[in-house]
Nucleic acid binder design. Sequence first.
DNA 1: TTGTATGCGTTATCAG
DNA 2: CTGATAACGCATACAA
Lengths: 333, 333
Amino acid sequence: MAKEKNAPTMSDVAREAGVALGTVSRVVNGQTVGDEFRKKVEDAIARLGYQYNNSGRSLRTGSTNTIALIIPNTIHPYFALLTHHVNMALEKRNYRMLLCFTEYDNDRETEFIQMAKQNQVDGIIALTYNPNLRIPDGIPFVTIDRFFSTSVPCIAADNFGGGWLAAHKLQEFGCRNLAFIRTGSTLTNEPSKRKDGFISACVDMNLPFETMILEDGQPFEQIETFLDSHIQDGKLSFDGLFIGTDYLAWQVIQALRKKKIRVPEDVQVIGFDGLRMLGNLGRVVSTIVQPVEEIAETCVSTVLSHHLSNVPSLICLPVKYEFGGTTREGNVQ
Amino acid sequence: MAKEKNAPTMSDVAREAGVALGTVSRVVNGQTVGDEFRKKVEDAIARLGYQYNNSGRSLRTGSTNTIALIIPNTIHPYFALLTHHVNMALEKRNYRMLLCFTEYDNDRETEFIQMAKQNQVDGIIALTYNPNLRIPDGIPFVTIDRFFSTSVPCIAADNFGGGWLAAHKLQEFGCRNLAFIRTGSTLTNEPSKRKDGFISACVDMNLPFETMILEDGQPFEQIETFLDSHIQDGKLSFDGLFIGTDYLAWQVIQALRKKKIRVPEDVQVIGFDGLRMLGNLGRVVSTIVQPVEEIAETCVSTVLSHHLSNVPSLICLPVKYEFGGTTREGNVQ
DNA sequence: TTGTATGCGTTATCAG
DNA sequence: CTGATAACGCATACAA
């Protein structure tokens, strides 16, 4: 069908070069070959415009040089960024990526794992939410942001440390009444620790705080209701908010401004993720930045060295705080 | 290496079912097989947990069920969205996507085309900028937003119509002094027609207009300079701007607000692309929306039916205007 | 170091 | 309609 009209093969090269098939293979794979043989082969390859065929190699070796990335979509900027860096990290190692969009669908998550095995991928990197997901064995598997067991490596940002840092930053910038807001409570994963780190820091610093968690499926209005219940005479009783994601933070900030609460004058806000406006412009909100590139790099190197038995089961990569217009850094006390 | 410990093959299934290898293949591929044979095979497949192996099929048929998507990155939201929909369109047809990020690098664009052929892909969908790019023959090739020749199908939004629509909308909303701003002038591609459509409409409507094009490599400040040169006593001489992309529009709006020019009160702005905040929240700017999903779908169906000789060489898909907070629709005159 | 030969899992061509 | 068998392009064990 889409087959090249008799693309030259290794045997063609061998015949053209007057050497054996095996020699061509060895040249192509960079193994030791006598100089003059190598030259003959290289010339023949150039003359014929020989193109390496991957299917043959895959069939023979059983490895496809492909890693599956299972992820909800590429529309949310965090996923888009992660996808980008995973693909770059793979490309650097001469691997390819099989992209699987789950759209947050539990069944699709399961099906893709099946499908990936079917496609003989050499490993799977997965960012999933299905509470009953079964990790396949017999294939290197790395998860992002979600710990399954000590036998399956989990890569994540230091979520606990990020929450802790956010609380400390808010305190440092003069906040004295904090609140934490996030969505999605059914699944406990690594990002859940953002709250834990935040609370830990608040307790340590002896700062009062509240938490508001929007259960899965609840409308955003619930958060507005929560905010309203903390507004008296047009004034919000919090002066610092830590919000689970930049995405949610953005929505909350819009809601606050609609209520005539000024950010950061009346209340300072720190989000989490480190998103940028339209991909690479300014920060959307002051934020705890995830080291996306390092996460991607670590996922790739881990999944590719999965056969080594001493891979750590949870790798937390350092986060950092970055200004995004919704804090008052000048006011450091 | 990553090879399953002796995964069952078609011959295993054949032996288990007591039928011939060919029969198993026919069952798997849904060809006509006697009912009781089919049953025997299906049972054996279930019993053995047989998994279809793609490398074998690819080697034999020369087709990999894979389409390469060559695109700058997945960080810019428009590309991210396009990537998403292309992958979904491919998945629907049981095809896979080989993602190639060019990072706007001319050499990488060229190399990926080579690489894609090497990987035996069944077709290429490419969004490129290299002025000297050579389209390979012998492989279905579809380009996005850039016309090469009548022999290579180009899919794009109706850019001319979009520019035309933007001018008309601005006029409809009461604007009488328009300007068009865009970046990137070296390469002439389909998006270049946004300007042509805009000008055509302005001329038709007898509306005065100016155009400002930021040459590749020039700093954004040039646009600020342009704006400044049209500000007298704190007032901008334009009351309507059509800007080549939402991305640039966002930047221009920030610059305007810094200059105390209010949007949309003092000047209305329409961008192009239809980006949403953080992927799927509100519009970034009032905009001409590209039909991304249809573009993706058309690319896929075109590249897969490329062997049909009567594919159109330029397909322009309809755009629409959508409000995004930077126009004054109430003020329709 | 190089040549030879085999088989990876599949599809397709033939006979039966 | 089914069974047997020959490729597809490559890597590799083994022989030279």
